[in-house]
Write a protein that binds this DNA or RNA. Structure first.
Lengths: 192, 192
DNA sequence: TCCAGATCTTGATCTACATCAACGTGCTTT
DNA sequence: AAAGCACGTTGATGTAGATCAAGATCTGGA
């Protein structure tokens, strides 16, 4: 149950067995069925979620009802509405499952206690944030400087597994394209 | 000299006078003239820089020579090529000054020692990263879901001072627009 | 089994924004 | 004071990608 997350953590910080137990003891295991919400707009996000199985997405819904995907997550990734989680404000994103999934969730108050009891966790979450920050920065620069086709090619180069698992129109939404445009890009690419 | 940065820090963590001294003792004060580089593509970023005066920008240059602005920074903000800094790889961004500026720079090895000696700094930089992360996420969602005009209106709403200080074509570059398009958007807005 | 919805594709048309080009103004540098 | 940039504006035209519409598969639920 905890193998994946402990392995994930051990890449960044070293824990004693006691500390590892301290950590896993506050994790809550949850199963999320396909199309089921992990978080809905308006709720306050209580948890940081580590995905142990399946695939989820975080997305906003605009005034016209259009969905815009902020991030995907698969096994070994974290997913949450970080802003809601950090500031205790209502979430602006929905998170739901694209496949039957399982997550390990840590509650905010538990995480804060953990920071105090095992200071290394400050370091861990700082590193995770750094990586996420850098990924976001690349995504921004891509979106302001690349064509739709270039962005899609970068996407499949960086996330080849996601391209296989996720419906095409969800990827279009992630890239800020219409499904039709992505379909045409793929058709052109197939010829090359 | 250190008033601004100590005030900035005190919003997030509480330091003893000794810890504050420990911190300021590793800061390096630098003056950067308008158009002068703080960091150039290819160099490894050695510093995190806190701006005490002036205005800087971080930007990439694409194959066609086009500049794409990753971020602006003014007094009270941090600026760096975080990826280069964290991974000791050559920077992919230039940072230069849009006005005569001054920064306080902390070197990577000093920061790492600081994390050990004063663990609260882990917390500080985690919080700073969280804020930056959230800002980036909003920018991504804006760029994939809003029109050019909407993005510009959001920009001036969020950064009214930047809109005053920064040349218009730099803002266009930040938003991923051409200077002509931004000029036309502003003309339309003026009528409203 | 059958129906409804989800997904993807293809074509026709539209439009937001880019590109190209010219010009005015006000700094900076000498 | 002159020359040269940097910066912004405006107009004409081009194009990437959106929108609208229709149809083909496929899938899951009653």
């Amino acid at each position: 149950m905890y193998d994946l997350i402990l392995d994930h953590i051990s890449r960044h910080i070293r824990l004693t067995p006691a500390e590892a137990n301290r950590f896993t003891s506050v994790l809550r295991h949850r199963k999320i069925r396909r199309r089921q919400y992990l978080l809905q707009v308006g709720d306050v996000s209580q948890y940081e979620n580590f995905i142990t199985k399946g695939c989820l997405r975080a997305y906003t819904v605009d005034a016209q009802g259009g969905e815009h995907i902020a991030m995907f997550g698969v096994e070994g990734w974290w997913i949450s509405d970080l802003f809601s989680f950090l500031t205790n404000t209502p979430a602006t994103q929905n998170i739901d499952a694209l496949e039957d999934s399982e997550v390990l969730s840590i509650e905010k108050s538990d995480l804060e206690k953990l920071y105090i009891d095992v200071p290394e966790f400050n370091r861990l979450f700082r590193i995770l944030l750094q990586n996420a920050f850098v990924a976001h920065q690349k995504r921004i620069l891509a979106s302001i400087s690349q064509t739709a086709e270039e962005q899609y090619m970068s996407f499949i180069a960086r996330y080849p597994t996601l391209d296989q698992r996720v419906p095409q129109h969800q990827i279009a939404s992630y890239l800020g394209l219409t499904p039709e445009t992505l379909s045409r890009i793929r058709k052109l690419q197939a010829k090359k």
